[in-house]
Amino acid sequence: MARRPALKKQVTLTDPKAIRALAHPARQRIIDELYSGSVLTATEAARLCGLTPSAMSYHLRALEQWGIIVRDASTEDGRERPWRAPARSLHISSRAAEGSSKVAAKAFVSTFTEPLLKDLEAWAASDRRGAAAGASDMAKDRLWLSDKEAAELNHEVRALLERYGKGRTPERHPEDAQARNVFWSILPHTQ
């Protein structure tokens, strides 16, 4: 089997058309799965999303076109090549979001907010919210920061997230670890 290249730190989308490629729930579900460390064939991805393998292959190739996902090394029998994320995280440039159409802007927002809302609803309904003190938390703060300070804070948070996520995949992680979604945003306050 071919050796898998090391993951880049991040993929950053700068083209509004690339953001538009995110505008489908199946694509968002697969991006979430692959950027969490999974490696999936089109058939496995289709099963996750309730689509046919043919329809899923179309979506996978569209994401590949923008470098959002890549084909992994061939399987032993060579019949179906799996897909993976080329990096540990996916970022969308604020410049791309500013220059995007309403459809692309909606895809940009929904890529991050729909999974967040789903996780928040499950968390609120769970009877395990307090199972481990501090293990699951939410916070909303307002800070008064210069652009330079906001950039520094963003850099520090990304470095911290990278430290905790480095080398961990669905197959490789501490025995007592569970998958946790982390959402981070630092946005200007609007009135």
Rank of each mutant, 00 (worst) to 15 (best):
K148H: 15
V11K: 00
L34T: 01
D72E: 13
L34K: 02
R180Y: 13
T190C: 08
T75N: 14
P188T: 08
R84C: 15
A177C: 03
H173Y: 00
A104T: 12
G78M: 06
R172T: 15
H91W: 11
F183N: 12
K140Y: 12
H91M: 04
L143W: 09
V11S: 01
N154I: 00
R129E: 05
W184V: 15
I31S: 12
D141H: 09
S89T: 05
W66K: 06
L60C: 07
S146M: 07
E152Q: 11
P16D: 00
N154G: 11
L40Y: 00
H91A: 10
P188N: 02
L60I: 03
R27W: 02
A159Y: 02
S74M: 07
L117G: 12
G50V: 02
H59V: 03
I19L: 15
W144D: 02
A85T: 05
E162K: 04
G37A: 08
L143F: 13
P82S: 14
D147T: 09
S94Q: 12
E80A: 06
P16R: 03
L90A: 04
C49G: 02
R71Q: 15
L160P: 01
R180N: 14
R128A: 12
T52V: 04
P170D: 11
P16E: 00
F112Y: 13
S185P: 03
E162F: 14
A151S: 14
P53S: 07
L120F: 05
D32C: 03
N181K: 13
A150F: 00
Q65Y: 05
V11A: 01
P25H: 11
K166V: 06
E156H: 14
S110G: 00
D77Y: 11
A105K: 07
R168Y: 08
E98S: 12
H155C: 05
P25L: 10
I186A: 07
P5W: 06
G165L: 06
Q178C: 01
A150K: 05
L7G: 08
V11N: 00
P53L: 10
E80M: 09
R180H: 06
S38P: 00
W184K: 03
L120R: 06
G134I: 08
A122I: 02
T190F: 13
R47I: 11
R84W: 08
H59C: 00
H59D: 03
A6Q: 00
R47C: 06
R79W: 05
A132E: 15
D32I: 07
A87P: 02
E76W: 04
A55G: 03
S36K: 01
L90T: 03
I30R: 03
A23W: 11
L63E: 04
I30S: 02
T52I: 05
V157D: 07
L160C: 11
E171W: 10
A96T: 04
D72F: 14
D147S: 10
M1E: 08
E44A: 10
R128C: 13
A177Y: 05
A46E: 12
D141C: 04
L187F: 09
P82D: 00
G99M: 03
A131S: 11
A131W: 10
A124T: 04
P25A: 14
R20K: 13
A62T: 08
K118E: 08
K148N: 09
H24L: 12
L7C: 14
A18F: 10
G67K: 05
E44N: 04
M1D: 04
R168T: 11
V103K: 13
S54P: 00
R172K: 12
W66N: 02
S74A: 14
E98D: 15
A139H: 09
R29K: 11
